[in-house]
């Protein structure tokens, strides 16, 4: 039972990480319909930016995190402005944009490896705290992963529902055509979601840096799991992305309770496969038209 409790908490923690990745990716995807593959290397770049700020500039970690978010936001906006927007203006299909994004993925990942080297990077001398609650262990970074997910998602929810910009984002997500008609500058909205979505990715990126260190190839898994979380939870819904991410984390952790761990990377997909076969309308009851 102790093991189960521990696995449950692990699932919650990793699920929170996936959920936050999904929220950032999902915001961009739902609003712009761009499968932003390069979300992965921007996530990586954010981790390295945080490393640079903390280790080289010697800034405190919260400041490094903000710095990373700023770097990610700038990279995200540049990517939209100079890569996706020209494709959009050229009336390219979404497939073409996807492959262009893949091109950027390859460029950025290798650029990062050249600049920062292929070895891992950690913040020298950083030590996180360990908590023991009953039989369950977790670290302060892991706690941070859960808190970051809850707080940032809640803030984003309020922002989307309450502010003028947030409402413009929601309107564009609902129907870009209609949004343009009622006078919303959808290009501006897209720029905004790329800034917010990318900045959001910097938080889990920094936490992974603190937890495991940064490597140039860490982005692939991040964008992959974010994509899956969004689709599992349902495109266009903040709650869906969170639910999708948590579900993935939980299944991955609890699924291995009795199953050998060599199935770790596929267990969530096995469950997913079965669920979609049995419930083709999606996990959370949305009907597919």
């Amino acid at each position: 039972m102790d093991l189960f409790a521990q696995l449950f908490v692990n699932g919650l923690i990793n699920g929170s990480h996936y959920a936050l990745l999904g929220v950032g990716f999902g915001l961009i995807f739902a609003t712009t319909r761009i499968v932003h593959f390069a979300y992965g290397p921007i996530f990586t770049a954010a981790a390295y930016a945080a490393w640079f700020a903390a280790n080289v500039l010697g800034l405190p970690i919260p400041v490094a995190m903000v710095f990373a978010a700023a770097v990610a936001a700038v990279l995200g906006v540049i990517t939209y402005q100079y890569l996706y927007l020209p494709f959009e203006r050229g009336q390219s299909s979404s497939h073409v944009t996807l492959i262009a994004s893949l091109g950027l993925f390859i460029v950025l990942e290798n650029l990062i490896a050249i600049i920062f080297g292929t070895g891992g990077r950690v913040i020298d001398g950083y030590q996180y705290g360990i908590f023991l609650v009953g039989p369950i262990y977790f670290s302060s970074v892991q706690l941070g992963q859960v808190i970051a997910m809850v707080v940032l998602t809640a803030l984003l929810g309020v922002y989307l529902a309450r502010t003028r910009h947030g409402k413009a984002i929601l309107a564009t997500t609902d129907n870009p055509e209609m949004a343009r008609i009622i006078g919303i500058d959808t290009v501006k909205v897209s720029r905004l979601v790329f800034a917010i979505g990318s900045a959001l990715s910097a938080i889990p990126a920094t936490l992974i840096l603190l937890k495991d260190g940064a490597t140039p190839s860490m982005g692939f898994f991040a964008v992959f799991i974010a994509f899956v979380a969004v689709i599992v939870g349902g495109v266009g819904s903040l709650r869906g992305a969170v639910a999708g991410g948590l579900a993935l984390g939980m299944v991955e952790s609890l699924g291995l309770w009795k199953i050998p761990t060599e199935w770790q990377s596929s267990i969530a997909f096995i469950v997913l496969f079965l669920v979609v076969l049995l419930r083709p309308q999606g996990l959370f009851g949305r009907t597919v038209s």
Binding site: N10, F221, S253, P260, T261, Q264
Partner: peptide, 13 residues
Amino acid sequence: EKMDVGASNIDTQ
């Protein structure tokens, strides 16, 4: 227990 090469999440293991 087994872990994938370069896997970052080994909490379950």
